[in-house]
């Protein structure tokens, strides 16, 4: 039932309310002194390297695409794995074919060096 998702809904509402509340409190009680160091982009306490809006390396994109593809593979694996024991040999062969086709892509990605940063 959808009612099982009620805790998640409560969590969402609480999280949003807490965030709004804290920002609201800060904007009311916090002193507002704008100095140069304070207005810098936050980079974990370091002096920022370059502008915050610079172009990212295209490798990030490749990593994200690979992540999505393997993510979707897992989405297909999970329902199969839940009922695997009751399905028999045919389902196993089906999944082996599925994995086999995707393994070709995995080997290709490996050979092309897409899994390495440099």
């Amino acid at each position: 039932m959808a009612i099982e998702f009620l805790p998640i809904a409560i969590l969402f509402v609480l999280a949003i309310a807490l965030a709004v509340f804290i920002v609201f409190l800060g904007s009311i009680f916090g002193p507002k002194r704008y100095i140069n160091t304070k207005m810098m982009p936050y980079e974990s306490g370091m002096t920022p390297i370059g502008p915050g809006t610079r172009r990212m390396n295209v490798r990030f994109y490749l990593i994200a695409v690979l992540f999505i593809l393997f993510d979707i593979e897992v989405i297909f694996f999970l329902p199969w794995a839940v009922v695997f024991r009751s399905l028999g040999l045919f389902a196993l062969i089906e999944m082996l074919v599925f994995i086999g086709i995707l393994l070709v892509g995995y080997v290709y990605a490996w050979k092309k060096g897409a899994l390495e940063w440099e």
């Binding site: 295209v58 490798r59 994109y61 490749l62 695409v65 690979l66 593809l69 979707i72 593979e73 297909f76 089906e94 074919v97 599925f98 994995i99 086709i101 995707l102 070709v104 892509g105 995995y106 290709y108 990605a109 092309k112 060096g113 897409a114």
Partner: peptide
Amino acid sequence: PFEVASVLLLAALIGAIFVSR
């Protein structure tokens, strides 16, 4: 459709690597 999905994923994988390398 399940098996075709794997071919689709394979095509997307190879395409993404080819475009961005």
